[in-house]
């Protein structure tokens, strides 16, 4: 945790941590505290008086079917995004691990989407699926699927899942490939001598050994889908059509800035904070111990 030998100085260490602590207090802890305070208050329509209402905002929130629906939608969205991004990357990483010649070329060509902002990833796929000019909607039309994410909620949902997952492929690929390369060759060779084919070797040896990486990536991808995909949705479908792509983070923003429902928005913020805290603890527990198998 700390060095055996240390400096001692009366005020220097405080000076060194001061910038970080000041920013943390002003821009992180204070606003978070305000959100908690706001969430137990109700303000009248003119903002003239506020009233302490205990947990009324929360009760209202969880009694509101549209909030519960958004909650459910967010969970479906996050797991679909994580599953799509991880499945695709794992397939590519397994293939890249097999290949000896040209592996680094493929790696370079797969790594750059990490640099693309989620908002821009959203805009790209928005264009690919555009009913008029989009090549994918055109091809789908050829096989009899009429695609219009401006009207069809399920299609809009699929669109944001694909855009969000696309951006995450390179991240997952890097970690899966590192995980695969850490699998001891001797184990695979032993299995091969015993007559196990490539698929059997993957399912019985490589995949179980990869589980710490998989679990870690699952948490990271869920956090990403929960919080960083706001841009994907705001830049493209704006939560629509008819709220089909509204996820929790988008709803907080929308209710707060557009709907100006301060108490409700604050209560939503607190719920989100609890989710982040749980996810962070899960992530850290894992980092401390690694998953046993």
């Amino acid at each position: 945790m700390q060095k055996r030998v240390t400096f001692s100085h009366r005020y220097l260490p405080y000076l060194l941590v001061a910038p970080q602590i000041i920013i943390t207090v002003i821009f992180f802890i204070w606003p978070a505290g305000q959100a908690v305070v706001q969430s137990v208050l109700v303000e009248d329509a003119f903002g003239l008086s506020t009233e302490f209402v205990w947990f009324e905002n929360y009760q209202e929130l969880f009694a509101d079917p549209s909030y519960l629906q958004t909650f459910y939608r967010t969970i479906v969205f996050s797991f679909s995004t994580a599953a799509l991004a991880m499945g695709f990357s794992l397939l590519l990483a397994v293939m890249a691990d097999r290949i000896i010649k040209g592996e680094s070329v493929y790696k370079t060509m797969l790594i750059w989407p990490y640099a693309v902002a989620p908002a821009l990833a959203g805009v790209l796929w928005f264009m690919m699926f555009n009913p008029t000019i989009g090549i994918i909607s055109f091809l789908l039309g050829k096989v009899g699927v009429s695609w219009n994410h401006y009207l069809n909620g399920d299609q809009a949902f699929l669109l944001v899942v694909i855009a969000a997952a696309w951006k995450q492929i390179s991240y997952n690929f890097v970690f899966f490939l590192a995980g695969l390369q850490a699998v001891p060759r001797s184990l695979i060779e032993a299995a091969a001598i015993d007559g196990a084919g490539p698929f059997r070797r993957f399912w019985s040896i490589v995949f179980p050994l990869l589980s710490p990486t998989t679990f870690f990536l699952l948490v990271v991808n869920l956090v990403y889908a929960f919080f960083d995909t706001f841009a994907v949705i705001h830049a493209t479908t704006q939560g629509g059509p008819a709220k089909a792509t509204e996820i929790l983070v988008y709803k907080v923003f929308n209710d707060g800035f557009i709907g100006l429902d301060l108490g409700g928005s604050a209560a939503q913020s607190v719920v989100l904070m609890v989710i982040v805290i749980v996810l962070t603890i899960v992530q850290f527990k894992y980092v401390e111990r690694k998953v046993a198998y």
């Binding site: 941590v17 970080q20 602590i21 943390t24 207090v25 002003i26 821009f27 992180f28 802890i29 204070w30 606003p31 978070a32 305000q34 959100a35 706001q38 919080f227 706001f230 983070v249 907080v252 923003f253 707060g256 800035f257 301060l262 928005s265 604050a266 913020s269 989100l272 904070m273 982040v276 805290i277 962070t280």
Partner: peptide, 24 residues
């Protein structure tokens, strides 16, 4: 104490405290 305070920022992404941070 300072260490844990810095640690807490990990749990408070902008997305979950949009309104109050905007006010600050």
């Amino acid at each position: 104490f300072f260490f844990w305070m810095i640690f807490m920022t990990l749990m408070l992404p902008v997305e979950v405290r949009i309104m109050p941070t905007f006010k600050v």
